[in-house]
Structures are given as structure tokens and as C-alpha cells.
């Protein structure tokens, strides 16, 4: 097989590009540029000054390279405390959510025990039906979780989708391994910790990443549940900066002495929010792709 592949590659290199292939390459390059360019433009604007941008908005590089937008952002926005809060929520949330999902998924992968089907369907039902925005909010209020960072951790919570996928992962463990362990006197807990978890470590890594991204990106409910500026998450802080900047731009357009470059500050905020994902993504991409493939097999 591998020599066949090598030969194929060799043949491919020698072959000339056909018109069709050129069209394909050009269309893909176009799509890649359409996706890439707005990002690039945002990077450029975030390092630009107001004056330079007004004079020359169509620029492929910052004409007056400056860190003023980032300085303004760090001094005025809640970006830094947002980082702190989001890292806290993402870290604790991912650990708790993954532990609970893994335990549930393993339990649901065990063979018949009383109540298994009922419990599994009850958990799956939450995927299809929910109480909706107000009852959910009122429940958080009743529990006294409003304006607590724990509320976001609990809202994102356990993903039923993760449970389904991890469950089918656990179900693939060869039965002989478990039987051998049972003969050695291991109970379900020991099998779980010593056999199942190490066997599924690749799958666990992938879904840990997905969960972490979900926590990092959660915005809507963290906005509903957290009110005080000091507890704001990064996404909420970004959103606040964006709407404040737009409002400020409306009020002060044309006003003399106003030298904050709102567009630049917005883009700087965007850059800071996506920086960690941007740095890690290229290296972690293959794990993410693996995750979606595992999911599609199940589907």
C-alpha cells in the first residue's frame, strides 16, 4: 500500500496541471483568501493609528505601527480581568465537565443493569427539549448563582453529545480485557480507571479540547448570569468594548481632541480574545478533525 501511494505521488508530480485542476486550485485559493483576509485586515487595523487609517484605509500593513490601541484597551477595558475569569471558568469547567461526562459515558457503556435504559433516555431527552430561557434563568436565581463565575461553569455543564461519543468509545473496548481484569478481582471502578481511561486517552484529549473551546467561547449565558464588571468573561468584555466603542463613535464623531481610534480598539480586543485559539489551533487541528470524524461514524 505505501509503495503504491509513493508511486502515485511520483506520478502525480510528473503529471501536468490540467485546466480543471487549475480552476480548482484558483477557486480554493479564492475561498482561502476570502476567509483569511478579514482576519488579516483586523490585525492590521489593531496596530494602526486613527490618523493613518483615516488617510489611507486600504492598506496591507499598518502605515504607522503603534501599540496605542492595545495600551488603551488594557487601561480601559476589562480585558485583563476577563482573561483571568475566562481562564478560571475554562479550566475548572473543563475538568468538571469532562470528569462528569466520562463517568456517565462509562456507566452507560456497561451492560444491562436496572434502570440503565430509562436513565440514558432521560439524559438524552435534554438534548431534544429544554425549559427555555426564563425557567433556566430563574433556576440559577433560585440557587443563588447569579453573578457568580460558577454559574457559567454549570450552565455550559455536561454535554450530552460528548456522552454519546465517549460511550460508543468505551463500548469498543475488547471484552476479553475486562473479563481478565474481573478474574483478577477488579471491580467496575478499577476497570474504569486502570483499563478504560488509558485506552480512550486519544478520544478524551479530543473532547477535552472541544469542551475547553466551548467554555472559552460562551458568551450569551455569561452575559445573562454575570453582572459585575470584575467577574465578566473575556467574551463579555469584548462585546462590551464593541458596543461601547460604537456608541462612543456615534457621540464623538467630529469632536476635536478625540483621539481614541474606536475601530482599532475593537480589533485589538478581538485579537486578544482569539489569540490563544489562534496560537494553539494549527497544532491541535488534527485532534479536532479526529473528533468530528468519530462523531460522524456514530451518526
Amino acid at each position: 500500500m505505501s509503495t503504491f501511494r509513493k508511486n502515485l505521488k511520483y506520478v502525480e508530480k510528473r503529471r501536468k496541471w490540467t485546466t480543471g485542476q487549475i480552476v480548482v486550485a484558483l477557486s480554493l485559493t479564492m475561498i482561502a483568501l476570502i476567509i483569511f483576509f478579514p482576519f488579516y485586515n483586523a490585525v492590521v487595523i489593531s496596530f494602526e493609528t486613527n490618523r493613518a487609517y483615516t488617510l489611507n484605509p486600504v492598506s496591507l500593513y499598518p502605515t504607522e505601527l503603534s501599540l496605542a490601541n492595545y495600551e488603551y484597551l488594557i487601561e480601559n477595558g476589562n480585558i485583563l480581568s476577563g482573561y483571568k475569569n475566562t481562564i478560571f471558568i475554562t479550566f475548572i469547567g473543563t475538568v468538571l465537565s469532562m470528569s462528569a461526562s466520562v463517568m456517565m459515558a462509562y456507566a452507560f457503556s456497561r451492560k444491562n443493569y436496572p434502570g440503565k435504559k430509562f436513565l440514558f433516555l432521560s439524559v438524552m431527552f435534554t438534548m431534544l427539549f429544554s425549559g427555555g430561557m426564563i425557567p433556566t434563568y430563574l433556576q440559577f436565581k433560585n440557587l443563588g448563582l447569579i453573578d457568580s463565575r460558577w454559574s457559567v461553569i454549570l450552565y455550559v455543564g455536561i454535554s450530552t453529545y460528548n456522552i454519546i461519543i465517549l460511550k460508543s468509545g468505551f463500548e469498543q473496548t475488547p471484552i476479553e480485557l475486562e473479563e481478565a481484569a474481573k478474574i483478577d478481582g477488579a471491580n467496575d471502578l478499577i476497570i474504569f480507571v486502570r483499563i478504560e481511561l488509558p485506552l480512550q486517552s486519544a478520544l478524551l484529549a479530543t473532547f477535552t479540547l472541544f469542551t475547553a473551546v466551548a467554555y472559552w467561547n460562551e458568551w450569551f449565558w455569561s452575559m445573562l448570569l454575570i453582572n459585575s464588571a470584575s467577574k465578566m468573561t473575556l467574551q463579555t468584555a469584548l462585546r462590551a468594548i464593541v458596543s461601547e466603542a460604537s456608541a462612543a463613535a456615534d457621540v464623538s464623531s467630529g469632536e476635536a481632541g478625540f483621539d481614541v481610534f474606536t475601530q482599532g480598539v475593537k480589533m485589538a480586543a478581538v485579537m486578544m480574545t482569539m489569540l490563544p485559539i489562534m496560537c494553539f489551533y494549527p497544532f491541535l487541528q488534527k485532534y479536532f478533525v479526529k473528533g468530528v470524524l468519530v462523531g460522524s461514524v456514530k451518526m
Binding site: 463517568m103 452507560f108 439524559v123
Partner: peptide, 30 residues
């Protein structure tokens, strides 16, 4: 059978409590 699966229920309990408190109680809120 229940006794035999006691560890399985133990592993489930944490998550089930979560689904009751944060999904089923709000569902009753409808």
C-alpha cells in the same frame, strides 16, 4: 443486580444530579 452495579450508579450519580437540577427542574418551570 442493583448491588452488583453499585459502582456504576456511583459514577452516574454526579451527572444525574446535574441533569435533574439544571435541566429537569427548569423543565418543570414551563
Amino acid at each position: 443486580d442493583i448491588w452488583k452495579a453499585r459502582y456504576v450508579y456511583m459514577l452516574l450519580s454526579f451527572g444525574l444530579a446535574y441533569f435533574i437540577v439544571f435541566h429537569y427542574v427548569p423543565m418543570s418551570g414551563i
